[in-house]
Structure formats: C-alpha cells, structure tokens
Design a protein around this nucleic acid. Sequence first.
DNA 1: GTCTATACAGTGATAGAC
DNA 2: GTCTATCACTGTATAGAC
Lengths: 185, 185
Amino acid sequence: MRTINERADVIPLIAEAFREFGYEGASLSRITERTGLGKGSLYHFFPGGKEDMANAVLENVDVWFEREIFQPLRDNKPDLAITRMWDAADAYFRSGARICLFGSFALDNTRDRFKSAIAGYFRRWIEALRDALVRDGWNPAEAKDCAEDVVLAIQGALVLARATGNNAVFARALARLRRRTAANP
Amino acid sequence: MRTINERADVIPLIAEAFREFGYEGASLSRITERTGLGKGSLYHFFPGGKEDMANAVLENVDVWFEREIFQPLRDNKPDLAITRMWDAADAYFRSGARICLFGSFALDNTRDRFKSAIAGYFRRWIEALRDALVRDGWNPAEAKDCAEDVVLAIQGALVLARATGNNAVFARALARLRRRTAANP
DNA sequence: GTCTATACAGTGATAGAC
DNA sequence: GTCTATCACTGTATAGAC
C-alpha cells in the first residue's frame, strides 16, 4: 500500500522543517524525513527544488495571515478585529513555541532570495493594524508608531522565547501589547 | 611575503561572516574568503572547527557587551548608564545595519548547540537593565516589564530592519524605547 | 603559522523504472 | 505519483610539507 499526497498537504510539513532548521539547515533529506516523501515526489510537486518549496511555504503562511488577520483588520470593526488579531497571533505562534518563517528568513542570507515576500508581509501587517487603530480613534502618528512597535515586538518576543527556552516571555509580551492596543490614547 | 595573524584578530572577521550568512550558511570556504586564511590556519586557531569558531565569536561579542553595557548598568549612575546603553547599542548594531548574532543563532537549529551562551546573554542584559531602572526610582514590577520589552524590541527592530531593508525602522524603535526608559513612571 | 592535497559524507538535483 | 540510482559538487575535517 502506498499513500497518494497532494501538494497542498505537503506544504505545512515542509514549513515545519524550515521552521526547525532554517532555510540552509533544512536539507532535502530532512524534508524527506518530515514529509515521508522521496526526492522524486518532492521534485514532482516542486520542480524548482528547495527554493520552490520555500516560496510555496511563505505564500501559504502569507495567505493565512491575510485571511485571518490582515483582512479583518482592514474590513471589520477595529476593536473586534484587533482582539481577534491577538488571539490569532497567539494561536498561530503556539504561544511562543513556533517561530515566524518570515522573521527567520530575514535574519540569514536567505533574505535576498525572498526579499519582496518578506518585506510585503511585514508592511501589510503594519499598515492594516495602523489603519484599524486610526478607525478606532487613534491619531495617525501614534497609530503608526504603535503598529510598528507591535509587529516588531512580536518578532522580538519570538526571538527571546527561543533564546531563553521560555515561552512565558512571549506570553508576557503579548499581554502587554494587547493592553497597549486596547488603551485608546 | 606573508602575513602572520593572531587568533584575536581573526575572530571579528569570522563574526561578520556568521552575521551575513548565519551559522549553517557560513561555510568554511566563505570564512576563508573573509579572513584571507586557508583552512590549515583556521584549524590551527580553532581545532574544534566551525563550532569552535562560533563559540569564540559569541564569547567575543559577550565580552564586549559585558564591558560596554552590562557592567556600566550594574555599577554606574543608572540614568547615565542607560543613556550610554542606547548610544552603545546604536553604534554596535550600526543603526540597524548589523544583526545580533545571539538573536540570529537563536532562530535556527543552531540554538541547541549554543544554548547557554545565548540564554545567558539575554538574561544578563535584562537583569542589568532592570536593576538600573530600579536604582533610578522605578518600581520593581514595572522595571522588569520595561527591561524585557527593551531587549526584546531591539531584537525585533533588527529583524524588521533586515526584513524591510529599511534601517529607519530600527532608528525609530530605538528613539521610542529611549524615551520610555528616560520617562520615570 | 600557512599552505596544498586529500578523504569522505552529505548536498541539491536529474533520469528513468514502476 | 512514487521510488531508486546516480550525478557533480560542496561540505567539514585531516595530514603533512614548508
């Protein structure tokens, strides 16, 4: 007996490999382990090889954030959308146990290869949050600062949680940020 | 003619290679390029190979931070030490153009190998800053939150500056953080 | 201390049988 | 779609001449 896979099913498994080992560290043999697929199947789904896989993974993550966080921030009632953002972010990053692939790729030499995807993800998050804050009554300048601080602090909290092996750092940071976006200045 | 090097002179060059390519991405041939030293010389200085080099580099960075930032925070007049911390951090990270090796190593699979060095660096920074804030009149709970926010936000600002290719993000974040530590609550 | 030569495992990638 | 075999290449590391 053998299992027939679909491309869409494989992408999240590859994503976890990249999360754990980074772009350079995630060798094809490790990706083979994680997915249970041989190189033949991998190259069938991703003719462009590893770079192709990484692009698919980043796009997959981006689509999730657009649907669950960015679009709601743009379209829904701002205070509810922001509350939802915090819940979604906490769930997505598994309360600090899961890193952000865009952040991870931004720090090593992978950054140039996926430059526009990485920049776009952060830019859209900051802009969507800023607009939601403005619609919630913040003045534009403070909303911009706050949005930048929030997105940046989430990345920093993930780094620090990993660095110290203590996810509570992430939970504490999220709680403080949540209060800040809730307190309309 | 040939140049005779000392171990201490080579370490900063290797550090830049790790900064640019990450631990996995910094191959010995790239390190050879950057240092101008053949593998023979490299293994002469670092018998343990690449891991040995990384340990030397991390220790080198740690010593710098201890001397320029952590110790002053512990021993000097708190408000002056904190001002000095901001200037030193801005200079060290080249206003966002240079990433933090501890943060970089924390995100990929290198983390386990250098676990205690990475955790210790962040822990000592946070504790030294917290104590300085307390000595500056902050209440302990708020000082702890602030210190954690500061160290985490610096890492996040470096990630975001790299991700967007825009060092101004780092400059803006540092300015906001500086104001926060200056405003005694 | 520096170099060259070399060993050998692992890399990303391709071809073709099933 | 999945697999195995195989490719050329680069990886880390070692030995030994100078």
